[in-house]
Design a protein around this nucleic acid. Sequence first.
DNA 1: TTGCTCCTCACGTCACGTGAGGTGGC
DNA 2: TTGCTCCTCACGTCACGTGAGGTGGC
Lengths: 263, 263
Amino acid sequence: MTALLTIGEFSRLTQVSVKALRHYHDVDLLAPAQIDSGSGYRYYATAQAPAAQLIRRFREMGMSLDQIGAVLRAADADERDRVIIDHLRSMEHQLEQTQATVASLRTLLEGGVAAAEVELRQVGSVPALTTSDRVAWDDTEIWLRDTLGDLRRRLEPDARSGPDGALYSEEFFEAHVGPVTALIPTRGRTGDAGPLPGGPVAVAVHRGSFNELDQVYAGLGTFVAERGIGVDGPIRENYLVGFLDTRDDDSLVTEVCWPTRVL
Amino acid sequence: MTALLTIGEFSRLTQVSVKALRHYHDVDLLAPAQIDSGSGYRYYATAQAPAAQLIRRFREMGMSLDQIGAVLRAADADERDRVIIDHLRSMEHQLEQTQATVASLRTLLEGGVAAAEVELRQVGSVPALTTSDRVAWDDTEIWLRDTLGDLRRRLEPDARSGPDGALYSEEFFEAHVGPVTALIPTRGRTGDAGPLPGGPVAVAVHRGSFNELDQVYAGLGTFVAERGIGVDGPIRENYLVGFLDTRDDDSLVTEVCWPTRVL
DNA sequence: TTGCTCCTCACGTCACGTGAGGTGGC
DNA sequence: TTGCTCCTCACGTCACGTGAGGTGGC
């Protein structure tokens, strides 16, 4: 026999707040077993306690109600596990990010890293295999990993003429969502290749994790601004040693090219 | 020379979105170096880049703008460090919680733990050293640790007559903020002791981390509801082996007492 | 019968994002 | 001079929390 409880009793049993329970009802995540027409009183069955507690657990893990809904309504165990694993992966990622940030925080607080060495250079317009898309800031690393992987698979043998790279539009930086182009420079015309924009650029090289790449951006941007040689156009990153080449973040080597007016 | 940049240029340099920069201005966290009266255009100095990047780093770590403001406006390095350390501690705690939740999630998904053994018992009204306060759900563990520690220090030698415990009001469960009482039962009258409420209760014992205590609550609540012997009043937890007694969560032993009508 | 519990709005919070509609700067 | 950048509202998002004001249940 599964008894019916008022919302307050069910709240104490499940340790979910009354306000939260009403909210879960509103958004159709967890409806009471019975509702008194007339008074509108919600009555929950003791058998609903596990569902409520699952929601509470997942919420504590930072899962959204949409994701939790997907878990609860999952057709089979496989689908359910997929959603959970997905979330765990993003949690782990976030965790690594935070740890890396903490690690480099002291450096930043104590005067920042040494100013990057900036070099002015002329880049030519070479052909390349490219894929462009609107990408959101937080999805960039995954998108780039997938897209560069695809491009590598489509690349004809010996066709490569330089390291993997990417173009980031101004809109991407300013709105944290916008056009990004993944690219591999090629020799001559190769299939659906598009030519890369050429011109004068200010260049700086960064060794190590992407977490500290912001220092290079600040260095380049300041360099260009103080000389008044800024110009519009996408910023290019060249992955001299990229995440497809190594599993050790410390051995990454990234070149950032900031478009400029003159040489 | 520190050049002045438009909001878009500064956004690209710092990798902070334009909308975020305007927001930081609105809330007085980071004001532009100069504002054009008339057009209202914001102009940022390259020298402001480190501040903007600090904000971005801290935000990625989940710090609130209020906390970040406290860091930026900190009078001295000590105060600044204190805010940061505080945040790191709470991050670590959150992290442990999540890992523990993940660990016990599979158990919950695969049918839940064995039903707790529920026992009916009569508790007497004994004197006790107590401290009561309105406590928020998420602060409970820290509050309880501090408060029980204080009570222990105020306890006269040999005055203890039972394990540390706490009373949780119904409001506390239903609103996730409300009265909580920390207590140590004593022999006879001891200083500002208050007598504990006595009466019949349903009792279950939990061994291990507080993370799985919700199972005991569900078990007790269901037991009481299905027999229709529920009654109002605070729920009491007795820390037979508490967090002040051990550093190993697995060896915690907690007794939960749920008030009932009859014996 | 008296409160106590529950109900439904409506609005607040936090850190921005998303347009709309309009003016200024190069 | 043409757009492109920037501006200011106003409202949306997410998961509830916070009252206000009112009715039903034991």
